[in-house]
Design a protein around this nucleic acid. Sequence first.
DNA 1: GACAAGTATTTTAACGTTAATAGTTGCAGC
DNA 2: GCTGCAACTATTAACGTTAAAATACTTGTC
Lengths: 363, 363
Amino acid sequence: MADRRIRYADRGVTLSHVAVAANVSVQTASNALNAPDRLAPGTLKRTLAAIESLGYKPNRVARALRNQSSRLIAVKVEAARSDRAAPLLDQFLHALSSCAADVGFHLILCQADDDRSELAAYQELLQTTAVDAVILSSTHRGDPRIAWLRERGVAFATFGRSWDGDEDLAWVDIDGKAGIESVMGHLVEQGHRRIAFLGWPNDSDVGLDRKQGWLAACRRHGLPTQHLAVESADDFDYGRSAALRLLSRQSPPSAVVCTSDTLALGAMRAMSESGLIPGVDVAVTGFDASPAAALTTPGLTTVRQPLDEVASELINHVEAELSGNPISPRHSLLTPTLVTRESTARQIPVHLTDPPHHRRSHR
Amino acid sequence: MADRRIRYADRGVTLSHVAVAANVSVQTASNALNAPDRLAPGTLKRTLAAIESLGYKPNRVARALRNQSSRLIAVKVEAARSDRAAPLLDQFLHALSSCAADVGFHLILCQADDDRSELAAYQELLQTTAVDAVILSSTHRGDPRIAWLRERGVAFATFGRSWDGDEDLAWVDIDGKAGIESVMGHLVEQGHRRIAFLGWPNDSDVGLDRKQGWLAACRRHGLPTQHLAVESADDFDYGRSAALRLLSRQSPPSAVVCTSDTLALGAMRAMSESGLIPGVDVAVTGFDASPAAALTTPGLTTVRQPLDEVASELINHVEAELSGNPISPRHSLLTPTLVTRESTARQIPVHLTDPPHHRRSHR
DNA sequence: GACAAGTATTTTAACGTTAATAGTTGCAGC
DNA sequence: GCTGCAACTATTAACGTTAAAATACTTGTC
């Protein structure tokens, strides 16, 4: 019990210790850090030396109480679903945390299963001065969270654009259209002409954005689109069955472009089951550059989001907002990069346009 | 600028507002929440009603300053490596965060690339009362972090056992040996006799623990082990080449048990390249139940760690420690569960013991 | 040598909470 | 009616910091 009361090494060092050591007042010690120009050179030097030798670190909590600002940023963590490929969250959190640390912020996690409970969590954290700002992910049309945070004057930035044309929102997003267009460019270069699109249902704005990339590329290169687009929720099994539908068409595609790695991996499963070898008989591509895409066989061609950049811009936004001089431009659309792997390795001979032949189905 | 000064809805509600509303002193209002038995029934009711109607929430920061306890727990996030399959972190963080919330704690992330900078980060957070406790992951032999936290009397618990026989450490870990043994049981049932082990180098205690499972099962079932164990760092490409070595042996194994999903996925790649179909010609298993294992084709048989349980026990430990009555037993070894998928689907006919034949190598 | 005009430093008060203690009230007992 | 004692409630002080106001100390000027 007794040792439970022991204080952490330098935990007890406060400004008043520094003040005594440097023979100045507490306020002067404080000024040495916060307004050094107010001190006479000699005093400053003496005080800083005391701070240094005592290992003084300002108490975050006291500072937070006094300044009404905790330098903590709330981020939501979602339950990872095992039927989805993309825990970008991992990398994203690391990047965010790292950028935050650079400007003296820390991340505090909050956990919620829907928009409403997410707001309740923010409410609690904000109301109790526990956090200064919020980072939102996966914004959607008519997102109640945005309105809610706005209303309360909370500093926040979103990973995901404003789908309601809110020009003043601080957002960072990935240009999904451009990402898919680069995938399409790569496939066309490999000689593909019938390129299918396996995407999310039309109620997803992110999904539509990516689909625009497919449509635009098809238009530009004069490729067919009819009967080549299918929809599926972002789920491995749904992706698999949607891909089976595509592959059983009269004139099946030679490549399938997918809105996510999850769907692409489902499509690869469908191909295997149809006796087709992904990357040889049919090309497949995903989106997100999840670990699964790199480690599956054949490796999945996909699109990598520049998460470090996203994180850094988000932190810049909230930091600027909190210090009172918001950044312009309010948003940036970052271009993801194509990652080519074996799933699109095979070059299609120019004279070949007929559908791939079905091979023996194993098992 | 002006609207930047607006306060969040109920942010301004403090105990003194409650006190005025209920016509009691501030301290009585505080007691209504912290020591309700001290109030006369009427006063209590009146005060609670005021708290309710004003939407008062105690200010975490003020409370932290007064109580010298922030109810924040530090957790480290590592940079996710794209050549590794297992960002369990994602699920783990969610589980932790959720359990923490149940007892009024929140998680604060800190980010560090080695043990030393990790300690520096804790140092800073502890010293400034920013956190009350720490959750450590991936402990290793002679872990400096454990000694460091001990020394300072910090409350902490570890995901990963005490490898130095420290009986008093509060840890939760996964029984890797048992996990691999259940994999082995499954493979033996399928008729496998020559089962190889693709594991981490011997300097990893976690790796050795899992390897023990293989050795024990081989002994129990009278299976050969000679020339059947190879080592590789936890990396897809290393796993791939180690598996190639195994497969090119004179009498190759009919199954490859791996220490991680990453290695198993590397092994699957190696099999494909050798013209072997995983799950048909050679069985493969992994460990961790990462998303990639579920989504690759064929699906990878693996071992799932009960992360929810791990999280809950860890939080219980630190919570108990902070409130002064540490939990006994100090540690628990949780048994992971086998997840069978197509990579071990094929039953080996009893009379067959000869090595799998090499099929045509595609591409 | 007195006095304005700075500059350097200290004092005061406050952020919101709560443990410890002090104070008030009502009521039984002498 | 006064004392003693519950049973409540209020006051004080402190957690560590910092903005603002107050004070002390320089320096320069005539």
